[in-house]
Nucleic acid binder design. Structure first.
Lengths: 124, 124
DNA sequence: ACTACTGTATTAGTGTAGATAGTACAGTTG
DNA sequence: CAACTGTACTATCTACACTAATACAGTAGT
């Protein structure tokens, strides 16, 4: 279900997070469907349960899944609360934008870039 | 000339970089004016010359100053070459923008944000 | 209540990258 | 050659990220 690349420099927990996210996005995992337990997935992948846990905690913080102690972890409703992570992401954008001043990067350039990036999105 | 905050979490070399940059921006340092030597500034601040060096190397990479071995470091022409760092900064923007998709952040939101940030700039 | 599952917390080991410093090298100028 | 300049190499210290080991705690079926 999850394929790890042990040699990759991207952390294991990130790989798990991304692949679970992808499976939710493509509908392979449905809302309220139970995810593999941290232990079983850990054994499957030959890693420590805590590493899976870290991926799940991150996904929960982002609002994509929810966990219940003793029961399991489940996929959230598609319109689940992603406001927390949204604010964080917007703050990141603000941060990087605020440091462009000394380099003569104009508003128009940024606008153009944004336009371009969202145009690429549509074609997917 | 430079005031360090030793307790701050921002690295010393960054503090130096920022303050030199500010002094160039406000005209306190003029084009082709010689900067303090890495040693003298290091002694002034009670730090290692290499730390000052790191700030100078960064500023040079960004095109704000230039250094000549044996002579010294000097402020660049105001329209000095900042194209390298420009590209890097734009890449950063691209990077952070590319990760906004899953969180339902719209193009309009970003546009609004950019607009807002550049509006604040004008008032300075 | 016991058992077997689930998630959670605490702590520790490991690796790696960043920041700073010590020291030696090299160019410029008088 | 002396006294200044920047530069390069290396070591160390530290902080943090990643992962793991292990113990704790909740849920459900028997």
């Amino acid at each position: 279900m999850i394929a790890l690349n042990q040699t990759s420099r991207t952390p294991i927990y990130q790989q798990i997070r991304e692949q679970v996210l992808a499976q939710i996005a493509c509908g392979l995992l449905s809302p309220h469907q139970q995810l593999p337990g941290v232990r079983s997935m850990a054994i499957d992948l030959g890693i420590n349960p805590n590493t899976v846990m870290k991926a799940y905690v991150e996904l929960e913080r982002e609002g994509f899944i929810y966990s219940v102690a003793g029961k399991g972890s489940y996929v959230s409703e598609p319109n689940g609360d992603v406001s927390v992570i949204r604010q964080e992401k917007l703050a990141e954008v603000r941060e990087v934008l605020s440091k462009l001043r000394p380099y003569g990067i104009t508003k128009e350039e940024i606008m153009k870039l944004v336009e371009l990036m969202y145009r690429e999105e549509e074609t997917r």
